[in-house]
Design a protein around this nucleic acid. Structure first.
Lengths: 135, 135
DNA sequence: AAATTTGTAACATAATTTATTACAGTATGA
DNA sequence: TCATACTGTAATAAATTATGTTACAAATTT
């Protein structure tokens, strides 16, 4: 199972890119995603940490982009979710007395780093603007 | 969260590659992974569907490789787990009345297919033999 | 001052992953 | 042939993670 955080974040940002000069409320966004507004606000909190969006509290408040959609890459969006490309690890500590168990996680990590790097390169090659233009 | 199936499968296969001519029991394998033997047998069942391993029931039974480690790629191993590279989707159906909601999943799928292809190419470039030689 | 919105915590529910138990079936070999 | 030691698989339980809900303080607008 993989969480929907990236999908949610990119959905939010696509909406913001489509309404560049408006503060969109978490409720409006939530109704497009079909998601609880609190979860929208939580993802927005992550995007704010990366200065991708800004929000305004109070009446008529909401969220808007803090940077041009042509300057945000999918990589930055992915990174804001704190997720990682990985094919997973076994849950328990493998047996350190076994030559394979002892090193399996380290060898898997090395592999995953390679995969991650290449996926990040691809995500970096697409901007939010380009993504939003598909709609 | 991503399941540990790939990690488990590759751990199993690395052990089998290290003991090329022996039938290893699920209990022996499980003690290296630190995992319940039933789960090991379940993953082995998947590997068998892809003819990567074979097993023998009964006393002194167990599992061994059914193909040279130089002929198995990490891609085949990954595929045996029925998992997929994806950055996820939001759980609920997005709003079909919203221009963004209507197409988001289709646009995400297209992106994920691209990523998947490139990851698969990388996994295809490494054999089990090469992976096992790191230990 | 009333209304509306964000921010966040605390808690509840749902879904998925991992673990356990149980046991029938199969092969080995003493 | 019979005890032993495996696999295969189903059924169920426990643990973990993801998603959803409620509640409310704080901020801002009108």
């Amino acid at each position: 199972m993989i969480s929907g955080k990236f999908a949610i974040s990119i959905h939010i940002l696509t909406l913001l890119a489509k309404f560049p000069d408006e503060y969109l409320s978490s409720e409006f966004i939530a109704s497009s995603i079909n998601l609880n507004p609190v979860l929208v606000r939580k993802e927005i909190a992550n995007l704010k940490k990366n200065q991708i969006v800004m929000s305004k509290e109070g009446k008529n408040g909401g969220t808007k982009l803090n940077i041009s959609p042509s300057k945000v890459t999918l990589k930055q969006i992915f990174e804001s979710t704190f997720e990682e490309i990985s094919l997973g690890f076994s849950k328990n500590e493998p047996n350190p007395k076994c030559p394979v168990g002892k090193e399996i996680n380290q060898n898997l990590s090395a592999l995953y780093t390679t995969l991650n790097d290449s996926v990040m390169k691809q995500l970096e090659a697409t901007t939010l603007e380009e993504f939003a233009n598909k709609f």
